[in-house]
Amino acid sequence: MILGQTGIVHANDRLIRLSLPTELVESGLPKYLFPRFSLKTQVRVETVAPGEEAEIALGSEGRPVFTGLDQTWSMQVVSTEHPGAQKFADWIRSEIGQRAVTSYVVDGVQMFDLPQLEEVETVVAAYDGDAALGAIRSQEMCGRCHVVDPARRMSSIDSSPSFFALRSLPDWEDRFQTFYVLNPHPAFTQIADVTPPFPDELPPPIVPVEMTLEDVDAILAFVAALTPADLGAPLQHQ
Rank of each mutant, 00 (worst) to 15 (best):
residue 28 G to D: 13
residue 13 D to W: 11
residue 46 E to Y: 11
residue 129 G to E: 07
residue 195 T to M: 10
residue 214 E to D: 10
residue 164 F to H: 13
residue 100 A to S: 08
residue 39 L to E: 09
residue 199 P to N: 04
residue 186 P to S: 04
residue 49 A to D: 00
residue 36 R to A: 03
residue 205 P to R: 05
residue 120 V to N: 02
residue 126 A to D: 11
residue 96 I to V: 15
residue 118 E to S: 08
residue 46 E to L: 13
residue 23 E to H: 15
residue 194 V to D: 10
residue 138 S to N: 08
residue 72 T to G: 05
residue 122 T to H: 15
residue 112 F to Q: 01
residue 135 A to P: 03
residue 122 T to I: 14
residue 221 A to D: 00
residue 35 P to I: 02
residue 179 F to Y: 13
residue 27 S to A: 08
residue 129 G to C: 04
residue 194 V to G: 07
residue 49 A to G: 01
residue 205 P to L: 09
residue 184 P to N: 09
residue 47 T to L: 11
residue 185 H to S: 10
residue 236 Q to S: 12
residue 39 L to H: 13
residue 156 S to D: 04
residue 55 E to G: 07
residue 233 A to R: 15
residue 138 S to R: 03
residue 71 Q to T: 11
residue 161 P to C: 00
residue 186 P to K: 10
residue 131 A to G: 02
residue 210 E to P: 08
residue 112 F to T: 09
residue 8 I to G: 04
residue 118 E to G: 06
residue 216 V to S: 00
residue 104 Y to R: 13
residue 75 M to D: 06
residue 132 A to R: 06
residue 209 V to F: 01
residue 155 S to F: 12
residue 130 D to M: 08
residue 94 S to Q: 02
residue 54 A to N: 12
residue 85 A to V: 03
residue 19 S to M: 12
residue 106 V to A: 04
residue 21 P to T: 12
residue 18 L to K: 11
residue 58 L to G: 07
residue 155 S to C: 09
residue 108 G to Y: 02
residue 48 V to N: 07
residue 156 S to A: 12
residue 194 V to N: 01
residue 103 S to T: 00
residue 56 I to C: 00
residue 125 A to Y: 05
residue 67 T to A: 09
residue 50 P to S: 04
residue 207 V to N: 12
residue 136 I to K: 15
residue 83 P to M: 05
residue 207 V to D: 09
residue 80 T to S: 12
residue 203 P to D: 07
residue 148 V to G: 03
residue 117 L to K: 15
